[in-house]
């Protein structure tokens, strides 16, 4: 049982990251994660070790987000990455410019593409896990993912030369 808790704890950074990408609002994201954790603890006995705790949590979080959005008709926040950027700008101005580019490119993706990219490329879920979490077939995951990567790669390549001065 404490293994379960350890697994849950280990998943929290990823859950927060994903929630931020979904809500783009720091408080709303942590609300979402908190609801997800509460729900996971309530349903703890329902969890069957057929998959990982992590992918199970992502599924709960995603469903929570969808149902919250449906109920509250909540619009995505405008957090973008300002806070994070101001932090890193002090350390490395060049990096922050590049990061801003990246952020703009990722936030320009559709919600579906962005979430799929984050689940697989950042959080390391398998296609099957990402499909379960977002409630779509694996084929949809594959196409969303390739389109997201392609769009991102194109933007990076065509990005302003200024950022690439070396």
């Amino acid at each position: 049982m404490s293994d379960f808790l350890t697994d849950v704890e280990a998943a929290i950074p990823g859950l927060r990251r994903y929630a931020l990408a979904l809500t783009r609002d720091a408080d709303a994201a942590d609300d979402l994660v908190q609801d997800c954790l509460e729900r996971a603890l309530t349903r703890r006995r329902l969890w069957r070790p057929t998959g990982t705790v992590k992918s199970w949590l992502f599924t709960i979080l995603h469903n929570q987000f969808i149902s919250d959005r449906r109920c509250l008709n909540r619009r995505a926040g405008d957090l973008s990455m300002d806070d994070a950027l101001q932090q890193s700008a002090a350390d490395n101005p060049m990096a922050s410019v590049a990061l801003a580019e990246t952020a703009r490119a990722i936030e320009a993706l559709s919600l579906e593409q962005r979430t799929t990219l984050l689940l697989v490329a950042v959080e390391g879920l398998t296609y099957a896990e990402a499909a379960t979490a977002t409630g779509v077939p694996v084929g949809t995951i594959m196409s969303r993912l390739s389109r997201a990567r392609r769009a991102l790669a194109d933007k990076m390549e065509a990005g302003p030369r200024l950022a690439r001065v070396k």
Partner: peptide, 17 residues
């Protein structure tokens, strides 16, 4: 692109939980 996404993810998570 994946590397960029990971950077983005790390930057998002600036604050401690």
């Amino acid at each position: 692109a994946d590397a960029k996404a990971r950077q983005y993810g790390d930057a998002l998570l600036a604050s401690a939980p």
